Simulated scan of single mutants.
Amino acid sequence: MSHGLRSALTRLDAILIRCRRIPAALYSSKSPEKREKMEELQSSPYYTKYASKLTELQKANPAEFAKRLEEHKSVKQAVKEADKERVAHPVNIVSTVDPHKPAAAVRLQRTRLADLMKVELLTEKTAEEIAEMWRVYHKDKPGFICASMPASSYAQIQSRAATHPTFLYPLPRAAGYEFFVSQFAGAECHFTQLAAFQQRKADAPTCLSLVHLDELRDSKGLVLMRGQYDQNVVNAVQVQCLLNQLQLYYATSDPHKLHLLQQFNAHPDAFDYRDLISEVEHSFIGLT
């Protein structure tokens, strides 16, 4: 693990400890009905994010606060009806790391495209055909994942990674969220569990490694990505979730996501991990 990643994780650890100091309750009332509504609000996955704002609203406008409690119940029911299979998790920070299990890092060798495919046979192929061949090549390879992207998208990722090499991603788990940290190093990007670093420091294993192959960048306007992951830590769906988040932050035009990326790298003391959880939850809402 690089010195830069160790420094970033150490800094983030202190930030997370401070940010966990979330008010246990916003409302105190002898009314059983109001108490029930308040408990229902606090069970919402969005409560943590907006706790301070709701406290301010309660003090400034009690009537509006009571109205919000009523609205929350109807919104919660609407979300439940929109997707009955979704389970709303509380915002807990969880760990799947076994402190007694030896660390085993994923080490993806730096590969040339010629080591995997006969590049000379790709001359007459379109970018779309090559991307499909790349997908099929990795289809039945357990522990591997692949992707393809326009050269322009990779150029933007490269540019962002050069100035903001490290970032944090929440991965939904059964009991809440687990955080993973990524570190770019040239054409490679490595992920590790935050909890693994907290327990093992420099010995924390990489659980997901990515390498970008840009040999077709000029001729086809295409960059291929290959990843290898520890199947004891994450599965293919969870890896895809992490990669989707990486793309959202490093290839984004969203000013808020770019602000979070910049803030994490340049001003970590002002960074709030709950903003990332909110982004994940809001992304879900946008798809329902």
Rank of each mutant, 00 (worst) to 15 (best):
L287M: 02
P23A: 03
D203G: 14
K257F: 08
F284S: 00
I145D: 13
L208G: 06
V280Y: 08
Q247R: 15
Q262H: 13
N61Q: 00
Y46W: 12
E120R: 14
P165S: 15
Q262Y: 06
S148E: 09
F144I: 05
D254K: 13
H72T: 07
C241V: 11
Q109L: 00
L242K: 11
E215M: 02
H89E: 13
F191P: 06
Y137I: 03
A251K: 09
K53R: 09
G221L: 08
A147R: 09
S44F: 05
D98T: 11
L121V: 04
D140T: 01
P102R: 07
S74W: 00
G143S: 13
L194P: 05
E56W: 14
L26Y: 10
L194C: 12
L242F: 08
L168M: 14
L287E: 06
C207F: 13
Y273K: 05
A236C: 06
T123F: 03
Y229M: 15
L248E: 14
D140L: 03
G176A: 13
V239R: 13
E124F: 05
K59S: 15
T163L: 15
T55P: 03
F179L: 12
V106N: 01
R6Y: 01
Q193V: 12
N265A: 12
E81M: 08
S29C: 11
D115E: 14
K141A: 15
D272S: 12
L122I: 08
N232A: 10
A147I: 06
P142R: 02
V106W: 03
V97Q: 08
L243C: 10
P99F: 04
L57Q: 04
P172T: 06
R110N: 12
H256Q: 09
R112V: 04
Q156N: 07
R11A: 01
Y27V: 02
E215F: 02
Y273H: 07
T55I: 10
S28V: 15
S283V: 00
R226Q: 04
T166N: 07
R226L: 05
Q198T: 09
Q109G: 00
R86H: 10
P62C: 01
P45I: 04
S7P: 00
F65R: 05
Q58K: 10
E124P: 00
D13K: 03
A63R: 02
A161S: 09
R110L: 05
E56I: 10
L122Q: 07
Y169D: 09
A8T: 01
E279S: 01
R226I: 11
A82Y: 03
S219E: 12
R200N: 12
M225E: 11
K37C: 05
T126W: 04
D13I: 00
E40N: 07
K118F: 01
E124V: 00
K37R: 10
F179V: 06
P268H: 11
G186D: 04
K34H: 02
A204W: 02
R11F: 02
A155K: 10
V94C: 10
A251C: 10
K84I: 08
L208E: 07
G221I: 11
R226Y: 00
D269C: 07
T206F: 11
K37S: 11
A105E: 05
A104C: 10
G186Q: 08
A187G: 04
I145G: 14
A204K: 02
Y46N: 04
Q198L: 04
M133L: 12
L121Q: 11
A161R: 08
R226S: 05
K125P: 01
R217P: 02
